[in-house]
Design a binder for these strands. Structure first.
Lengths: 152, 152
DNA sequence: CTTGAACCTGTAGTTGCTACAGGGATTATG
DNA sequence: CATAATCCCTGTAGCAACTACAGGTTCAAG
């Protein structure tokens, strides 16, 4: 598979992968993508392979993988003969994190909903939102709404 | 209500509000909390009001409000006679953000689950995780798993 | 050959803290 | 009163993961 000579500039690469030129240069600086070939004038030129790699990176980032995790995934995908247990492990670990974030976030949503529904347009003085946020006993994701008003 | 003279140090204040002294000094620097009174030796001393304010800030932050949003909330709570429409608006806006984050996150979770379940221990070559992340068509939260391999 | 868009490097800013280094203040104990 | 153990001070630099300039160069089209 003869890689045709790199012809697209950093702007188009970025556009096709869904990010900005600055981001590409940043990824180059931190070594997520290799150094691009350059024109005589010193401008970067890329081929399709770069588009694929950058797209991979952007998707992984959109999926919430950290740059370090992406680095691992890239290293693994560069070795196609490796069994994919490690890939799986990275994804599983990430899945766990996502699930715990989801739990906390939905607890937060419930609390915010209750706040909003209880703020019926009175004065700030008696605003439940302010009150809840001021509450000393409040502890997010547990006991957030049980026995809130039996103190003081 | 006579505010008794400020007696606690920054460490205890931080502990009681659930953060670190550095964070308190940071909040002072960015103007979220006012300048504390000082001992002759120059150490900060706080009273109960500071504990309440800092607790409020910490809770709001834990709830995911940005520092700017907290600033708004504080400004509003400092004016108890104001109708709480604006407080409500800030909370509602935040609720919307949380709900959209939740949606994206749960789409992500579904995708990760599918990834993980489809990676049955083959080689990286044929790993669905890598494949999905490389997929040009992939668009998070829609069409994430249809028609993946038709690009040269 | 000229224009204008795209590109270059390097540095600094963003958010919300956290972690030092290298001192001084306060407090508890002997 | 001396001393040790904490606490606290300022100032700076670091973290993630970019983003946004400034001030200059190159490229592609007309």
């Amino acid at each position: 598979m003869p890689e045709i000579s790199p012809t697209i500039g950093i702007g188009e690469l970025a556009r096709r992968a869904g990010c900005k030129p600055e981001t590409v240069r940043y990824y180059e600086r931190i070594g997520l993508v290799g150094d691009a070939s350059r024109t005589e004038g010193g401008q970067r030129r890329y081929g399709e392979e770069a588009v694929r790699r950058l797209t991979f990176i952007r998707h992984a980032r959109d999926f919430g993988f950290s740059v370090d995790a992406v680095r691992e995934l890239l290293a693994m995908s560069d070795q196609p003969d490796m069994p994919c247990q490690e890939v799986d492990a990275v994804a599983k670990h990430h899945l766990e994190e996502v699930e715990s974030r989801l739990q906390r976030l939905s607890a937060l949503r419930d609390e915010l909903r209750r706040m909003v529904s209880q703020c019926a347009g009175g004065k700030v003085e008696s605003c439940r939102i302010i009150e809840v946020l001021s509450d000393h006993q409040l502890c997010i994701s547990e006991a957030a709404h049980k026995g809130a008003h039996d103190l003081g």
